[in-house]
Nucleic acid binder design. Structure first.
Lengths: 346, 346
DNA sequence: TTGAAAGCGATACCAT
DNA sequence: ATGGTATCGCTTTCAA
């Protein structure tokens, strides 16, 4: 493993000169320049980012803190990755999975970011209180943080999310256009912040259209992918009571459960009932029928998060709160309302 | 951002002493030890891994090279992540997506690994020829490589894969036990190495059971998730010709296509025909019916890959080729053969 | 235009 | 048990 010193010796020059050439300074005459580059090439020199970092005090590495689960995290990371690469940055992955069991896991990840002198941190959807640990650790070292896909906003750090409120409203609008009036929501427990926001979007959309709506028209079920007996009872009861023409779900997993229950209850989707999901996860392509869903721009969210982080790294102190537009993917789980003709007549 | 020197000054000690304490050397008396630790705590000292790395010449970072796509890559990374964390290592992500367009993308990733002085590299499923670039770059710097999920084995680096050959055979065995005899395969193009292996597994399983089989009973379709007209024709024709009681697919995406075609052709799964996939991707939970599939142990593969890499980092020169067992997940796309009774009688 | 020397923050060896 | 000093590979003045 050759160093600049080796090149210098080979080329009969001083080591700092080699450094200058290799960093593209123009104060070096073409002749020496050429000699240095040739020897570097010949020896197969590879610059040592570590040594550079220790001197400059800066690394071109950002930390990615957050669980790896969830299906969509890969898209977020992909988005970050592309933006990173374009700016010559690298990602160090700090997976934090067992936040519930180990409350200090996050603090540890943050400390590791500091120890590795990352230039900044992108952090995904963490529980409220956990963030304080993060903040305490990173703020002290002036390492900027950007939150991505985090339901709650803070005035001390930037954040990138999808505009779920608008997204749900778009979904409802689509259902309305299809002639649906009896629209209900099935969603994850409302104490989850994202679920609450999407519920509010649903309520607002309905009210703005002058349709009757109440919290009773929202059914909360587990976030787990598996359909429990509890879920089944609750959902079946809810659907029987409300006899909705359409269901706008708070998430894709929930939508999958709805689809499954419909199948069991012999409710034909979309003929008897339309279903819309939320997220745009891979598997919604493969449900039966393929799910109409509000797609969150995960990739763009990742890219935007990096863009903001880079600004902060470069000294921008402003706090941003970016909401990215969702887009409705229309597939086969939605159709025109049966009662449409009637409604159009009145 | 305080350094050891700062602590030393504060505590009235020398900086090397501080280093010793902070690294847990026992040659330091309790009194000084305490003083150092207290000052470090008070100042909020955080060790500088960069500085440490430059001195020791080693980093506790490994590079992960490979595309982020594919659905299962997240599981592999998760597996690596857990093993990493347990050994105090970190992952630097070097996504290489556009290998086809940019043949040097891989070389660049490798060079970056060198520049960052990673301790080792785990690399995912790359085209044959591309590997040479990787090898040339990393071997020169004595950075060990472990291949994960790569169909072809090399004598110059270790590799971890799932035992697809055995996996397919297990799938076929299950179908046989269900009474099926007329079993065919639908798979990705056979010039893809993984497809070839799985095809061979299918052929072997059939032959070992004394059942008639030939390459004609294998149907190749595109790997793309979208079902093209071409695929449709081919598949429909294939199914009509062979009238199989069961299909063992070379991959989950292919299985999804088969399911969809069956739906269009009004072939009831599993009543008229059983279908088995290969991989165990998320979305196979949600197809209709949920797919019986041969699950590859992606997470374990990642963990194992790191374990091997760590050995190499620690000087082990031996080349390993590890095949991890798959496991059959039985869901609803498979059932007993209709002709079962008949067969049992004879 | 180039070289000499200092220093980044740590480790390691040799003294004391 | 502690301190001195050299060193890692590089960047960065400052002279020459």
């Amino acid at each position: 493993m050759f160093t600049m010193k080796d090149i210098a010796k080979e080329a009969g020059l001083s080591q700092p000169t080699v450094s200058l050439v290799l960093n593209g300074h123009y104060s070096i005459c073409a002749e020496t320049r050429k000699r240095v580059l040739e020897t570097a090439e010949r020896l197969g020199y590879r610059r040592n980012e570590i040594a550079r970092a220790i001197k400059t005090g800066k690394t071109n590495v950002i930390g990615i803190i957050g669980g790896l689960q969830g299906g969509y995290s890969l898209d977020i990371i992909t988005g970050i990755a592309e933006a990173c690469a374009a700016s010559g940055y690298f990602m160090k992955l700090l997976p934090v999975n067992n936040l519930e069991n180990d409350p200090d896991a996050l603090g540890q990840a943050a400390r590791q970011c500091v120890e590795h002198r990352v230039a900044g941190v992108i952090c995904r959807s963490l529980k409220e209180h956990a963030l304080d640990t993060l903040r305490a650790e990173l703020d002290a070292m002036h390492i900027p943080i950007v939150l991505v896909d985090s339901s709650s906003h803070h005035d001390w750090c930037s954040r990138v999310v999808s505009d779920d409120f608008a997204g749900i409203k778009e979904g409802v609008a689509f259902l309305l256009k299809q002639g649906h009036r009896k629209i209900v929501q099935v969603t994850s427990p409302l104490n989850l912040e994202y679920a609450r926001i999407r519920a509010d979007g649903y309520l607002a959309a309905m009210r703005e259209s002058g349709l009757p709506v109440s919290e009773d028209m929202i059914c909360e079920i587990d976030t787990m992918l598996e359909l429990s007996d509890n879920d089944k009872h609750k959902l079946a009861g809810f659907l029987k009571t409300n006899k909705p023409g359409a269901v706008i779900c708070g998430s894709d997993p929930v939508a999958m459960k709805v689809l499954r229950i419909c199948h069991e209850m012999k409710i034909a989707v979309p003929d008897d009932m339309s279903v819309i999901g939320f997220a745009g996860l891979d598997y919604t392509n493969f449900s039966s029928p393929p799910l109409t869903t509000v797609e969150q721009p995960f990739c763009e969210m990742g890219a935007k998060a990096f863009e903001l982080l880079l600004r902060h790294i470069n000294g921008d102190q402003k706090i941003y709160d970016v909401k990215l537009k969702t887009s409705l993917i229309i597939r086969d789980s939605t159709g025109k309302a049966k009662e449409k003709m009637v409604l159009l007549e009145k």
